[in-house]
Design a protein around this nucleic acid. Structure first.
Lengths: 205, 205
DNA sequence: TTGACAAGATACCGCTTGGTCGGTATCTTT
DNA sequence: AAAGATACCGACCAAGCGGTATCTTGTCAA
């Protein structure tokens, strides 16, 4: 016989979304493997029963965080701006300028959630890897397409290989975040992105 | 009363070094937090008592791996080649060419031990962060010095800022490894490094 | 109004984890 | 040879982990 501390009103979608948010934060702070379900529950005042009602395993929760939290977040912050104009280099410069301007301690502290999970999980779990890879490929594709369009519009040098350069730029971005994170220095992060800006500039026709 | 399975001959240095090697591998495969002491012991046939004789805590073992295994390894593979010649860009191209040529599944599978630990540990443990930062700073410094020397010798464009560019190159390298790791694709890794080569080439006077 | 099911609660479980501790064997010193 | 320090052994421990079982309660269609 148990007395239950019942939530007044039910709201399964809210519960699910609360769990995803808390899990996202916990994973960002501790990594996936070290993420504690107990801690996630404590931060949501959701019960373990509710958690396992919505997600079959910790793994499922982690995969859902990738698909439903991280992917949309990156899409909004990095992909979307490209589709707005016909000069991809200008778009990219604007994005980078924005990142440099708004860089603060929170970005530098925990780094890029995508990159964090890549380094930790991609050798350990094939499904995690594929989820992350999907985001990465979309990112590269969006950028490559924009670069190719830019070539048509004579804004981008004809000798650049769009896919290759897009891949490199994504790599450089992740690298910059990573270095800034370890230096715990907003300034180092900004200096690194500035060099990337110079590189992007050199791609102009 | 316990009967002990004694090692015929004592060899503390060997034991310590065995532990460091096994810990390095375990950390590379699982990350630091998920690294299991039991598994390390199983791979070394060293007893738990011996481990805790040489290292006070798991943390000490991890820090020792950074200082005594990862740091020298990176120094040998990435720093040393710079001091050999007076044309830093040529040195760098040679290093990158070598990396592209010898890229194999093992590099792509587990990525860069330095980068892995950065993403996982730098927000969680200040001493880990400092140990990793020391390696990073040395790397950047070696490269920056080489670039500055290259400017003196008129081999490097006068308008490049050595420290900034060195930082960016290190970031780009880590980024390339990271992307290759998640793509599980030697080819993606190579393509990414090729773009870095083109960038390095553009620095020539 | 009621039956069926979704949603949520909580006590509990087996297992692994990093770490401890009393003890023993070997090596060095005197 | 005695003694003291160093190296090593392995049983044990508390805590935290992800996961399960069993229960109650809210919701809504029939």
């Amino acid at each position: 016989m148990t007395t239950q501390a019942i939530r007044k009103t039910r709201n399964p979608e809210q519960t699910r979304s609360d769990l995803l948010d808390a899990a996202y934060t916990e994973i960002l702070e501790s990594g996936y493997q070290a993420a504690s379900l107990e801690r996630i529950l404590a931060n949501t005042s959701v019960s373990k029963g509710a958690l396992y009602h919505h997600f079959g395993t910790k793994r499922e929760l982690g995969l859902a965080v990738i698909k439903e939290v991280i992917a949309p977040q990156l899409a909004a912050r990095w992909f979307a701006p490209f589709t707005e104009h016909d000069d991809p280099l200008a778009s990219l410069q604007r994005i980078l300028e924005e990142k440099i301007r708004t860089a603060d301690e929170s970005v530098i502290r925990y780094g890029c959630p995508l990159n964090n999970l890549i380094q930790e999980m991609s050798p350990l779990d094939e499904e995690f890897r594929r989820g992350l890879q999907q985001i990465l490929e979309l990112w590269v594709e969006v950028m490559a397409t924009a670069l190719a369009d830019g070539q048509q519009a004579q804004k981008v040098r004809a000798d650049v290989a769009p896919k290759e350069v897009a891949l490199f730029i994504v790599a450089a971005i992740e690298g910059c975040v990573g270095l800034g994170k370890n230096a715990q220095s907003v300034e180092a992060y900004q200096r690194c992105l500035r060099q990337l800006q110079l590189y992007v500039q050199s791609l102009a026709a």
